[in-house]
């Protein structure tokens, strides 16, 4: 979306590369002893390196979760491949990575024509608005007549026009070539509103000289469901990654945390928890793992809520609210089929 030429190049490279995946990715991973995970080269909160050079972020924790499920709790057995936007699909297609956890938007084209399988949505992103706090605006519907800074030639620009037209509001677009310049223009006061994907807004806010002066409005006006991706053609591997994702969400729903997971595994009477943590039935063995697979995962990275809070939540510099990423029981969209 951000860079159409590169994206075009990438899709050409991918289109010429649609080959059936080699089956039995799980066996390959077990034999190799490491999970090869394609990640972003750097996106605050999703994939970045800390001062010790260790990868951290929401996407990174998904790599660790899958590794922990396979290698009995050893989340360090991951080989990270930082990939640019153009590289990511060829790398997955060419079997250079086993799993792509790189804030990739789930679209029909990618899911079908490119021969990929999206395992789920680990972050519901979408276009949002940022304004100065002292404007006293609490909803995007109050933005009529505002000056909006937006990057040119992106779907962001189209979404913006559609949204204002649909709500019978006027706006003055300030269209700028690069996202960095858009941020600068907003910071210098050339416009009242900054718009891009919400996760990007939170990151841009950190670059403002006083982040607390700016707020991200609750409205999300487009769908950018980001999720981990695997190759088409290996159903076992697809199921495994999918259920690690669902397991993380179910764990949050059931109140299983990094702290209480061992206690729960041993003592819980709740049948949902007993099935999730392998006390009853053989769900782990059915997907080629041990029955304690989810215990290992939760012990390594925590449940979905803990992953979210640790990497992007209110206690991190990014301070992202759960919003659409809250559980379905709390008004959000995160929902997982039951382990049964």
């Amino acid at each position: 979306m951000k860079n159409s030429i590169l994206a075009l190049l990438g899709s050409v490279a991918v289109a010429s590369a649609v080959v059936p995946a080699t089956a039995a990715t799980l066996d390959d991973v077990k034999n190799r002893g490491t999970l090869r995970c394609g990640v972003n080269t750097g996106l605050p909160g999703f994939a970045s390196q800390n001062d010790q050079g260790e990868w951290q972020g929401l996407d990174i924790d998904y790599c660790k979760a899958v590794a922990a499920a396979i290698f009995d709790g050893d989340a360090s057995k991951v080989q990270y491949s930082p990939l640019s936007a153009v590289q990511r699909f060829p790398a997955l297609q060419n079997n250079e990575v086993d799993l792509l956890a790189r804030n990739t938007t789930w679209t029909m084209d990618r899911d079908t024509a490119l021969g990929l399988n999206f395992v789920g949505v680990n972050y519901y992103d979408g276009q949002g608005f940022m304004v100065r706090r002292d404007l006293n605006v609490t909803s995007a519907l109050q933005l009529s007549g505002a000056t909006v800074c937006v990057q040119s030639g992106t779907t962001t620009e189209l979404n913006l026009t559609d949204y204002f037209r649909a709500n019978n509001m006027d706006f003055n677009p300030v269209v700028i070539e690069s996202q960095d310049s858009v941020n600068t223009a907003y910071e210098q006061g050339r416009c009242d509103v900054l718009t891009t994907d919400a996760s990007g807004l939170y990151a841009s806010r950190l670059e403002m000289s006083n982040p607390d002066e700016h707020i991200v409005l609750p409205e999300i006006i487009s769908k950018e469901p980001l999720g981990p991706v695997v190759r088409q053609g290996d159903e076992q591997w697809f199921d495994l990654v999918k259920w690690v994702h669902f397991g993380l969400i179910n764990a949050e729903e059931l109140g299983v945390t990094q702290e209480n997971v061992e206690d729960m595994a041993a003592n819980s009477e709740n049948p949902d928890i007993r099935r999730l943590l392998g006390a009853d039935d053989n769900f782990g063995e059915d997907i080629g793992l041990t029955n304690q697979w989810m215990v290992h995962v939760i012990k390594a990275v925590g449940n979905y809520g803990e992953i979210f809070d640790r990497n992007v939540g209110p206690d991190t510099p990014l301070k992202i609210q759960r919003g659409q990423n809250a559980l379905w029981t709390k008004g959000g969209l995160q929902y997982a089929p039951p382990v049964r």
């Binding site: 080269t41 750097g42 970045s48 390196q49 990151a203 670059e207 403002m208 000289s209 990014l318």
Partner: peptide, 15 residues
């Protein structure tokens, strides 16, 4: 440039 995406270090002057 990868360092710029570490949320612990993003400031106006980091880049």
């Amino acid at each position: 440039r990868r360092g710029f995406s570490d949320p612990n270090w993003i400031t106006p002057s980091t880049a």
